[in-house]
Nucleic acid binder design. Structure first.
Length: 426
RNA sequence: GGAAGGGUGGCCGAGCGGACGAAGGCAGCGGUCUUGAAAACCGUAGACGGCCCCGCCGUCCGUGGGUUCGAAUCCCACCCCUUCCGCCA
């Protein structure tokens, strides 16, 4: 959510930001509703001041044993007018809030202009895609032939876009989670959280999934909860409603969670393999920081996520998302894309964003620089560190051998109980 | 699932429908004292919003309704927390 005062002072900057995003936002209506709301509110508050004054006089008169029935009679009428006017003000306020929650974040000045992912800008590459001396297989074929991924039985048990991992496949998933969490907690300074995997409406609104993107999530029937689409939701909202002591900042949190996505609009894309599933594992990184540091913090957040890929020896690149490809809440986003031989291109495996105060304002996360200082909104950031299912897929494809076996990256071998290779049975 | 108790300012904790934005304590901030610090004492002190914005006004005592000229205080519904019982990994 943007600052209403800022919007009033900079309506043109707001329009320009929306134009850069290619977002359709009723800016003029927003500004008009705000104007009408303030006008009504001022009138209402004048009436309330009158009432308060009269009530005080009535109280005083009664205490002195005087008769106040005439004033009470007069105030009865004022009270009715207040009630009616409150209705109007509340109506305008609700509309204003509704409009405000629909407005996406303003792209940072450094974000490249563009309409779609085709306009994203590559920032750097690391590692060389391997030259295979044979025809490499896609991970969904490797997974099945190695008997470590089972899509068919998952379809039977649940449905399309789910998978069983089996044997060393399940073990590899678990090893990756453990490896990532260890790296971020031991070497990058993050505090591990194990969050709830469901969250309420307020949390979903806080990070920006609601009200616009309810259709992308799974609602748990009989409850007021959604399955989380990312650990960003519980972890960012961990400090919601709080005023944090400035000395505590910056706060770094990391969390493993399964992620559940309905992705209603994704039918037909990435239908095979682990790339687009209704449920997947992810290790998330979240930062709460002082505003003036947030863009430096974004760079170091990206480095923390990149470190995972580097240690796993996976070729990747970093791209800066263009204005048209930014998610709703983000002011600036870098995606990490891993080389996926089956796609013959780089595929998103992490998304690292600076939300500035957009989420903090929705979730009411503030801090005080000094004891007694005014409360300010923190800046929030998050990034995948990494999406585990896609990492597993990338390992299978990039580490495959001609005989159909897959080598385990060195750093994972201890986490695999010494297993160095996954080979076909028999 | 059942029973009881409870949600008040950064924290703890009082609060007969009218003098309560809310006693008191702690923490904080400013000052006195001190070589300095601690202690003691004095003062100050919330968040959000509106406006004719160095001030004035409004709102906020879990949330939402209701009663009333007037609600932290009364009524209704809901949410959350704690304890006990049951059930359960």
């Amino acid at each position: 959510m943007l600052d209403l005062k800022w919007i009033r002072a900079h309506p043109d900057a707001l329009k320009e930001g929306m134009r850069r995003r290619g977002a359709e936002v009723p800016v003029d209506e927003l500004i008009e509703v705000d104007r009408a709301w303030r006008e009504k509110l001022t009138a209402l508050e004048r009436l309330k001041a009158e009432r308060n004054e009269a009530s005080e006089a009535i109280g005083l008169a009664k205490r002195q044993g005087k008769d106040a029935s005439e004033a009470i009679e007069r105030m009865r009428e004022v009270a009715a007018r207040i009630k009616a006017m409150e209705q109007e003000v509340e109506g305008l306020e609700a509309r204003l809030k509704e409009l405000l929650l629909q407005v996406p974040n303003i792209p940072h000045a450094s974000v490249p202009d563009g309409r779609s992912d085709a306009d994203n800008v590559e920032v750097r590459r690391a590692g060389e895609p391997r030259q295979f001396g044979f025809e490499p297989k896609p991970h969904w074929e490797l997974g099945v032939s190695l008997d470590i991924i089972d899509f068919e039985r998952a379809a039977k048990v649940t449905g399309a876009r789910f998978a069983f991992l089996k044997g060393l496949g399940a073990r590899l998933e678990r090893a990756l989670i453990q490896f990532m969490l260890d790296l971020h907690t031991r070497e990058h300074g993050y505090t591990e959280l194990w969050p709830p995997f469901m969250a309420n409406d307020a949390s979903m609104t806080g990070t920006g999934q609601l009200p616009k993107f309810a259709a992308d999530m799974f609602r748990v029937e009989g409850t007021d909860y959604y399955l989380i689409p990312t650990a960003e939701v519980p972890v960012t909202n961990y400090r919601m409603g709080e005023i944090i002591d400035g000395a505590e900042l910056p706060l770094y949190y990391t969390a493993y969670s399964p992620c559940f996505r309905a992705e209603a609009g994704a039918h037909g894309r990435d239908t095979r393999g682990l790339i687009r599933q209704h449920q997947f594992d992810k290790v998330e990184l979240v930062k709460l920081v002082k505003p003036e540091t947030s863009y430096d913090e974004l760079e170091s957040l990206v480095r923390d996520a990149e470190d995972v890929l580097q240690r796993l020896g996976l070729p990747y690149r970093v791209v800066a998302l263009c204005t048209g490809d930014l998610t709703f809440s983000s002011a600036k986003t870098y995606d990490l894309e891993v080389w996926m031989p089956s796609y013959g291109r780089y595929v998103e495996i992490s998304s690292c964003s600076n939300f500035e105060d957009f989420q903090a304002r929705r979730a009411e996360i503030r801090f005080r620089r000094e004891p007694g200082a005014k409360a300010e909104y923190v800046h929030t950031l998050n990034g995948s560190g990494l999406a585990v299912g896609r990492t597993l897929a990338a390992i299978l494809e990039n580490y495959q051998e001609e005989d159909g076996s897959v080598r385990i990256p060195d750093v994972l071998v201890p986490y695999m109980g010494g297993v160095e290779r996954i080979a076909p049975a028999g």
